[in-house]
């Protein structure tokens, strides 16, 4: 089990105590509030992940083959979901991120938020993070 999978397991446990939807959303809102802020200079169209119903902004960089992301969002529930994504990927090796498929959202009963019809930008956020990871992987290979 790699580090992402370990963290996913912890998140699962965190949610498993509750089966009431209100409590699950409470966790998300807490996570949204504790998310490290994104410098406003990145809240521009270039960093926008557009969902039809809510917006997210994402900034990613790599340090020593590991990915570091920051994000913000206008809807707090979506932002909480983004916080989970970042919690999982931040500081992790690029190839682990490329391989991971975020089944954790299934396990914590929030999978419907990832459906393409939700159009909250979350799916696009995950896709974009993976693209960053792939792009850095490629770049690192050609730098070798």
């Amino acid at each position: 089990m790699n580090n992402i999978e370990l963290k996913a397991k912890q998140i699962e446990e965190e949610f498993s105590i509750f089966d009431d939807w209100m409590d699950r959303y409470n966790i998300l809102i807490d996570k949204a509030k504790n998310l490290e802020p994104l410098d406003p200079k990145y809240k521009t169209p270039q960093y926008l992940i557009s969902g039809c119903q809510s917006q997210l902004w994402l900034f990613c960089e790599q340090k020593n083959g590991r990915l570091f992301c920051k994000a913000d969002g206008d809807a707090i529930i979506t932002k909480g979901m983004a916080a989970i994504v970042l919690e999982l990927v931040n500081g992790e090796p690029l190839d682990d991120i490329v391989k991971y498929n975020f089944e954790v959202f299934d396990k914590i009963g929030l999978h419907s938020h990832l459906s393409p019809t939700r159009s909250n930008g979350l799916r696009s956020l995950i896709k974009q993070i993976k693209l960053y990871a792939e792009a850095y992987l490629l770049k690192n290979k050609s730098d070798d």
């Binding site: 939807w21 959303y25 039809c52 119903q53 206008d74 707090i76 529930i77 979506t78 909250n120």
Partner: peptide
Amino acid sequence: IHPYDAATVLDELKIAVRVGH
């Protein structure tokens, strides 16, 4: 309250309304 957040909770309450543009 962002309309998406409101709709998420309304959906849990089984109230179908539309949010967005």
